[in-house]
């Protein structure tokens, strides 16, 4: 290409591009500054809920109804062991039948004033039994779309373990996400953002005990009843 020849004829262009760019850049910087800069906004604090509290978890809507300690009943557990039962009313908000076991992912951690129940401390703990219990006698496993269903999550307590007085549940949310590869829509848990570690601090090795990095949407505190009282 030839450079513009001062001798060439033709209208002389005013250098308009540079000033316009300068104004745009200044406006962008100004607006970014006005809205708090490029610092990430802090993640939302978990909602605090109590007995009877209701949480929209995206894939399902959950009412935290009750927590009780008692011997196993015919439908959940065996009679000579004690269980902590968390009673939920779950409405499946997705468009298809899901398993009651999905609530295992929906409630991230369960802690009592005695110890942590979920995720389990040892590998011999098989985790909670999660069943639907609509008529109170038969345990089943399905959550049909749009049907509010009673779900019981039962944790086995150790022999001679003190009965807990209260339980704290951390609940997650799901969001309908389009798969990058196939374009399919799936419910995926909302995850925590990676926190940047200060310089020089070693990255903690991932271990089984570390919590899955799901974002805690709500902390639910339930008092624990002794069954039959």
């Amino acid at each position: 290409m030839t450079s513009a020849d001062p001798g060439a004829t033709g209208p002389r262009r005013r250098p308009v591009l540079v000033p316009v760019l300068a104004v745009l850049v200044a406006a962008a910087v100004g607006l970014t500054t006005a809205f708090g800069g490029l610092e990430e906004s802090p993640e939302p604090e978990p909602v605090r809920l109590g007995k009877g509290g209701e949480l929209d978890q995206g894939r399902m809507r959950t009412v935290f109804q009750d927590a009780e300690v008692g011997a196993g009943q015919e439908h959940v557990g065996v009679p000579d062991k004690r269980y902590l039962r968390i009673v939920l009313k779950v409405t499946n908000q997705s468009d298809r039948t899901i398993s009651a076991q999905t609530m295992d992912n929906a409630l991230i951690t369960v802690r009592t004033d005695v110890r942590r129940l979920k995720p389990p401390a040892g590998s011999d703990d098989l985790g909670p039994r999660i069943v639907t219990l609509d008529d109170g006698t038969h345990p089943y496993g399905q959550l049909h779309p749009g049907v509010p269903t009673t779900v019981v999550m039962a944790f086995e307590l150790a022999q001679g373990e003190r009965a807990p007085k209260s339980v704290r549940i951390e609940a997650a949310t799901f969001v309908l996400t389009e798969s990058f590869m196939s374009g399919d829509l799936n419910w995926l848990p909302v995850l925590k953002r990676e926190k940047a570690l200060p310089d020089g601090e070693p990255t903690p090795a991932p271990s089984k005990a570390t919590r899955p990095p799901q974002l805690v949407a709500a902390e639910v505190d339930l008092p624990v009843r002794v069954a039959g009282s």
Partner: peptide, 10 residues
């Protein structure tokens, strides 16, 4: 309305 019900496990 597009909801998909699996056969009941009852």
């Amino acid at each position: 309305d597009g909801l998909r019900f699996d056969p009941t496990d009852r």
